[in-house]
Simulated scan of single mutants.
Amino acid sequence: MLRRLQPTERTMAQTNETSTNEADAVAGGAAPAANKKNGPDRKGKSETKRALKTTDGAGKAAEGKIKPKTKLVATAETKASVVLKKLKSPKGVTIEALKEATGWQAHSVRGFLSAVVKKKLGLNLVNEVGKDGVRRYRIEDAAKAK
């Protein structure tokens, strides 16, 4: 029958490991392994960091150059930038076209035009009904508006 060990008790493997580390320390003059999780064959965190700083992957001495961890990635166009680009066209754009470009519903497009384009960005948003009866929205330049 197996029983649980008390915190003060050691297994035979732990006893042998401790005596081996102590024997190595006496014989070789090295300190015993500080971190038992890593074991005697593995490097500790500080040793690994030190090795990374002093050598490159081929084992040659590094010249103090550290490669950036992040790569520059071209950012995708946001839905807001797509809407603003379409609104800047001289003909303007319809709600339907903006719905298709963004995937938004009509009330979301109108809310964006009111809250962001007019209020937050302070752009001069003009809406006109064309000959075909369709309402078109566009951003008018401040110089032309005056």
Rank of each mutant, 00 (worst) to 15 (best):
A80N: 12
T55G: 07
R135G: 09
L123E: 13
D24K: 02
V117M: 14
E22N: 07
A115T: 10
G103T: 02
V73A: 11
V116P: 06
Q14F: 00
P7L: 05
L121P: 01
D24R: 02
V126M: 13
E63W: 09
A13S: 02
A61Q: 14
L72H: 09
A97Q: 13
V93D: 15
E128L: 04
V82G: 03
G64D: 14
A145K: 12
A76S: 12
R110Q: 15
A143G: 05
N127Q: 15
L87M: 10
K120N: 11
T48W: 09
G29R: 09
Q105L: 08
A101F: 03
L98F: 02
G28Y: 05
E77W: 08
K69W: 04
P40R: 10
A62V: 10
S89P: 02
T75L: 15
M1V: 02
N16H: 03
T11D: 00
Q105A: 08
N21W: 01
G59V: 07
P7V: 04
A143Q: 15
G64Y: 09
A51K: 07
K119T: 12
P68R: 14
V116D: 15
R10N: 03
G59L: 07
K45Q: 14
G59S: 10
M1E: 08
K37R: 12
A23F: 00
V82E: 15
Y137N: 15
K99Y: 06
L5R: 06
Q14Y: 00
T94A: 12
T70G: 11
D141N: 08
K36A: 01
M12H: 02
D41Q: 07
A33T: 05
A51S: 10
K36F: 00
K69A: 08
A145H: 06
K146R: 14
D132R: 09
S46W: 01
K45S: 11
A31W: 02
L72Y: 09
K131G: 05
K65H: 11
G103E: 14
Q105I: 05
Q105R: 13
L2G: 02
G59W: 05
E100A: 10
V126I: 10
K85Y: 07
A101D: 14
K91L: 11
V82P: 01
T15E: 01
V126P: 14
D132L: 06
A62Q: 13
D41T: 00
N38T: 01
E17C: 00
T70F: 10
E9W: 01
A101I: 04
V83P: 10
A25R: 04
K120G: 04
K53I: 08
K79L: 15
A74W: 03
V109S: 13
K99S: 08
N35L: 03
L125H: 05
S19I: 00
K36W: 00
M1Y: 06
G29Q: 14
T70H: 15
K43M: 11
E128S: 04
A58F: 02
G44T: 07
N21P: 04
A25Y: 01
V82D: 15
A101G: 04
D132G: 01
P32Q: 05
